[in-house]
Design a protein around this nucleic acid. Structure first.
Length: 565
RNA sequence: CGGGAUGUAGCUCAGGUUGGUAGAGCACUAGCAUGGGGUGCUAGGGGUCGCAGGUUCAAUUCCUGUCAUCCCGACCA
């Protein structure tokens, strides 16, 4: 492609609205432009990278036995009403009406559409298993789109769904897709990790997320420093054994703690370790108040609460509600004397001896608090976030944290949708059974952003060859020079037969072309300059910056070795 | 949804406190020169100052509202 004929609007300055590297560079190098918050146009270069990623995805999915189709983005409300998600999905689902006032949604995901399709077309166990996938634009009205392509409201996703007549078959396909995903992210050059995850609103269990390690990641990964264990912090179970001090329990005592509210304030005021404090938070679980207790140095994990209570919503009660229910400000909440409100305590709380907690009375706390003796928790469970230094759940090593960008997710869905939508088949005995399902997603546009985030230097992008928009960037330093012009045209023609090549034929200064080339980040740069008349050109490796002068007759070999390594 | 910030040319920003119909750099157009790391000179084009009200003889500037965008948090296949 001649650069004079395509659209690559590079920017010299960093756009004010972009904070993260991938977003800045995608804008500066002319890959994307924003239309609305979380909505972008993919310009020619970005489109080429998307095509590369999609090709890798298709190849690996096909290899795993999945078949591509394409479903509508515009979906009838009835389907979502059938699964129940019309009501449970919330405002994130973009809803609209047609001219007849019929309700529709823009597809945030496609379980409903695919389940209805397969339900109507597949009736026998003989047709199972079946794995279908598509690459399509998804719409989610995110509360807060951010980081450019990393969290948009309109984004490209590869979503796959599998249908089975047995859990074994599901396990088999799940494994195959897992392998496909590992191949896909490895081929994109990404530094990723598969981690144990929460199934969230999807339902189901056995779910893994593919995380690209990055400081700007929105998820925290808890991983073992010695084994391969890795989990989303939301899910990592705490297996710490809490030792109970053999100190003799003393008698409960109420003390004045004027204006001391936070755990830090109270513990320093009373001269006790934060570990001795009982942090008490009032939650509303499916609207019902529940008092949750954790040790002062721990944090409540609302995902664990949600799973424990099999609830749909878990939220911290607002200050006003807390006052209404417990009669005090949030800084003075405690479990002692609380009636009519369920109390759940983290396992760590049980081994606190002579601890401290709020007195449900402004400016007062209790000291010498002993669980069981001074209050009864309805139950004890693991309801806190794992922390760095905690033992790894697999028993090997200790936990460390890393940030990750979720680029893929595989689920064993089970029969949640097939039961709700009556997707059944007849088994060998002619008996009707709900199909067992799996679903598997890859954020394609997010993967583009993740690669962009991972592969750049201070000058611009450094695309891995597998997803680079072009393999070779040919530059004619001075197109007005006859020798340079004719040699570059000749090379453009010749190299174009074997490589995707971008030819900078613009009448720009050399400096502008070099700066743009560095910014765009194509792996190999071929510069036709002063020595053109002697048949000598310059080959530069974008990644290493290494420059070679080569005769045109050995150019092909040089490029080949550069792209091969 | 809570907190914060910002909306002036395609981009990055000044101007505003002290109201008088708008500027710089980059980009763009034309010409000349230049031609290996964002070149120089000359001459140009481009803005309902986010939008709507209000105050005023007069509002980009002051007041109110509203919308948009970004950041933090909450939220989130």
């Amino acid at each position: 492609m001649r650069q004079s004929m395509t659209l690559i609007p590079t920017l010299r300055e960093v756009p004010a609205d972009a904070d993260v590297k991938s977003h800045q560079l995608l804008l500066r190098a002319g890959f994307i432009r924003q239309n609305a918050s979380g909505v972008y146009s993919y310009l020619p270069l970005a489109k080429r990278v998307l095509v590369k990623i999609e090709a890798i995805v298709r190849e690996e999915m096909d290899k795993a036995g999945a078949v591509e189709l394409l479903m509508p983005a515009l979906q009838q409300a009835e389907l979502w009403q059938e699964s129940g998600r019309w009501y449970s999905y919330g405002p994130e689902l973009m809803r609209l009406k047609d001219r007849h006032e019929r309700e529709f949604a823009l597809g945030a995901t496609h379980e409903e559409v695919i389940t209805s399709l397969v339900r109507d077309e597949v009736k026998s166990y003989k047709r199972l298993p079946l794995t279908l996938y598509q690459i399509q634009t998804k719409f989610r009205d995110e509360k807060r789109p951010r980081f450019g392509l990393l969290r948009g409201r309109e984004f490209i996703m590869k979503d796959a769904y599998s249908f089975h007549s047995s859990p074994e078959s599901l396990a088999d396909v799940y494994e195959r897709i897992f392998t496909a995903y590992s191949n896909i992210f490895a081929r994109c050059g990404l530094n990723y990790r598969a981690v144990i995850a929460d199934s969230g609103a999807m339902g189901g269990k056995d779910t893994l997320e593919f995380m690209v390690l990055s400081d700007i990641g929105e998820d925290t990964i808890a991983y073992s420093d010695t084994s391969s264990y890795a989990a989303n912090i939301e899910m990592a179970p705490v297996v710490a054994a809490y030792e109970k001090s053999d100190e003799a329990p003393r008698n409960l005592e109420k003390v004045k703690t004027e204006n001391q509210k936070t755990i830090a304030e109270v513990s320093s005021f009373l001269q006790v370790n934060e570990m001795q404090c009982i942090k008490s938070l009032l939650f509303k679980i499916d609207g019902r108040p529940v008092l949750v207790l954790v040790r002062g140095d721990h944090e409540v994990n609302d995902i664990k609460l949600k799973n424990l209570f099999e609830a749909t919503t878990v939220e911290l009660a607002e200050a006003g509600e807390t006052k209404e229910i417990l009669g005090c400000e949030v800084g003075s909440v405690g479990p002692i004397g609380v009636k009519d409100v369920e109390i759940i305590a983290d396992d760590a709380v049980k081994s606190i001896v002579n601890g401290v907690c709020g007195a449900n009375e402004e400016h007062y706390h209790y000291v010498n608090v002993n669980p069981e003796k001074d209050f009864e928790a309805g139950r004890y469970a693991d309801v806190r976030f794992i922390q760095e230094g905690d033992p790894s759940p697999d028993g090997q090593g200790n936990i460390l944290f890393a940030k990750g960008i979720e680029v893929g997710h595989v689920f064993k869905l089970g029969t949640r949708y097939s039961e709700a939508m009556d997707a059944v088949y007849l088994d060998e005995n002619g008996k009707s059974q709900p199909m067992i399902m799996g679903c598997y997603g890859i954020g394609v546009s997010r993967t583009l952003a993740a690669v962009a985030e991972q592969f750049n230097d201070d000058k611009g992008f450094v695309w891995p060859a597998a997803v680079a928009p072009y393999k070779v960037h040919l530059i004619a330093v001075n197109p007005k020079d006859e020798a340079q012009s004719s040699l570059s045209e000749e090379l453009y023609e010749a190299l174009g037969k074997n490589y995707e090549i971008l030819f900078d034929d613009r009448h720009e200064r050399a400096g502008v072309k070099f700066a743009d080339a560095d910014l765009i980040g194509i792996p190999v740069r071929v510069t036709v300059g002063k020595k053109a008349a002697d048949g000598i050109v310059e080959v530069k490796n974008r990644k290493t910056g290494e420059v070679l002068e080569v005769q045109t007759n050995s150019l092909a070999d040089t490029i080949k070795s550069l792209l091969g390594s």
